[in-house]
C-alpha cells in the first residue's frame, strides 16, 4: 500500500540520482530518518492517544455506559416482551438477549468508527489542519492514516472488550468461544470505518454531508442489518441492505462465535473476506486521497 508521492515520484526528468557522500548533511539526514520511516505510524498514534486523553471522559463514559444501557433496554427490556410472546428461544434458537447482544457489540464498534473516522479527519485537514503540520515533518501521508487507524483500533478494541465484559455479566454469551466476537466487532468497525475515513478525506467543506451519512447510512444500516430481528424477516427487496452492510456481516459472524448460530461455513468465510476487503480498500483509498490532498 505504498502510494506516497516519495515512492511514486520519478527522479526529476531522468537525471541520474547519486547517493549523498558519507558524512554529508544529506547522508546524515538519511540515517536519522530511518526511525521515522519505520515507526512513523506509531508516532502519529501516540499523538492521537494524547488527543484522546483530552476527551478521555467521554470515551470512558460511552464505553461503560453504552453496554449497560443497550443490553438493559434491548437484552432485558425488549427481550422480556419478545421471549414472553414468541417463546424463550424463538429468535435464532436462543434467548433474545443472546441473539441481540453480538449485534449490539458490533454496533458499538460501528459507533466508535463513525465518531473517530469523521470529524477528527475533517478537523485534521481543515478546521485545525494538524495533518499539514505532521506532513511537514518526516512523517509520510500514509503514516498519518496508519497512525489514525492504529489509535482508533485500540480505542475500538477497548470499547468492545468492555462491552463484551458486560455481555458476560448479563449472561448473554452461551458459547465459550464468545470472546472471538470482540475481534469480529473490531474487524467490522474498521472495515466500515476506513471506508468512511476515505470518504471524509475527500470532503473539502462540511456542508452537512457527514450528518447525512449518520442519518441515511449509519442509522438505516443499524436498523436493517439483522441487528434486532433476523434479516430474513424483511421482504426480499429490502434484504440487500443487509447483504452489503458490513454490520450484517459482522453481526452474523459474531453470532456464530457468541452462541454458535448455524450458518454454512462458506458464508462465515464470506463475512471475513467481505470485511477484510472493505478494510483494505478503505485503508488504501484513505492513504491515496490523503497523499494527494497534502501534496499541494
Amino acid at each position: 500500500m505504498s502510494t506516497d508521492r516519495e515512492s511514486t515520484a520519478q527522479s526529476a526528468r531522468g537525471q541520474t540520482e547519486t547517493a549523498p557522500l558519507p558524512g554529508s548533511v544529506g547522508d546524515r539526514a538519511i540515517r536519522s530518518t530511518r526511525r521515522t520511516r519505520r515507526w512513523g505510524s506509531w508516532y502519529v498514534a501516540e499523538h492521537r492517544f494524547r488527543v484522546m486523553r483530552s476527551y478521555a471522559q467521554t470515551v470512558t463514559v460511552t464505553a461503560i455506559g453504552n453496554p449497560i444501557i443497550y443490553l438493559y433496554a434491548m437484552g432485558v427490556g425488549l427481550a422480556t416482551l419478545v421471549d414472553a410472546n414468541l417463546g424463550a428461544d424463538a429468535v435464532g434458537g436462543v434467548s433474545y438477549l443472546a441473539f441481540v447482544a453480538p449485534a449490539l457489540l458490533a454496533s458499538a464498534a460501528i459507533a466508535v468508527a463513525s465518531e473517530e473516522f469523521t470529524y477528527p479527519i475533517m478537523l485534521g485537514f481543515k478546521w485545525n489542519p494538524v495533518f499539514f503540520g505532521m506532513n511537514a515533518s518526516p512523517i509520510r501521508p500514509g503514516q498519518i492514516i496508519n497512525g489514525i487507524v492504529i489509535s482508533v483500533a485500540v480505542r475500538m478494541f477497548v470499547t468492545c472488550g468492555i462491552f463484551y465484559a458486560f455481555m458476560l455479566l448479563f449472561g448473554a454469551v452461551p458459547s465459550g468461544a464468545g470472546f472471538i466476537a470482540v475481534f469480529v466487532a473490531l474487524l467490522t468497525g474498521l472495515g466500515f470505518g476506513t471506508l468512511l475515513m476515505a470518504y471524509t478525506a475527500t470532503l473539502t467543506d462540511d456542508t452537512g454531508q457527514l450528518a447525512m451519512v449518520m442519518r441515511f447510512v449509519i442509522l438505516p444500516m443499524t436498523l436493517f442489518s439483522g441487528t434486532f430481528f433476523p434479516l430474513g424477516v424483511l421482504p426480499i427487496w429490502l434484504q440487500w441492505i443487509g447483504w452489503i452492510s458490513p454490520l450484517w456481516h459482522g453481526t452474523e459472524l459474531a453470532r456464530v462465535f457468541a452462541y454458535g448460530a448455524s450458518e454454512p461455513l462458506w458464508l462465515s468465510v464470506l463475512h471475513v473476506l467481505y470485511l477484510t476487503v472493505l478494510l483494505a480498500v478503505g485503508w488504501a483509498a484513505a492513504r491515496r486521497i490523503t497523499a494527494r490532498r497534502l501534496n499541494k
Binding site: D4, E6, A29, T33, R140
Partner: peptide
Amino acid sequence: NLRVLGLDPNRYGPEIRSR
C-alpha cells in the same frame, strides 16, 4: 531541478523534512 541539502525532494522527502 531542486536539491535541498544535496537531496532530491522527489526521492528523499522524509529525509529532507527531517532536517
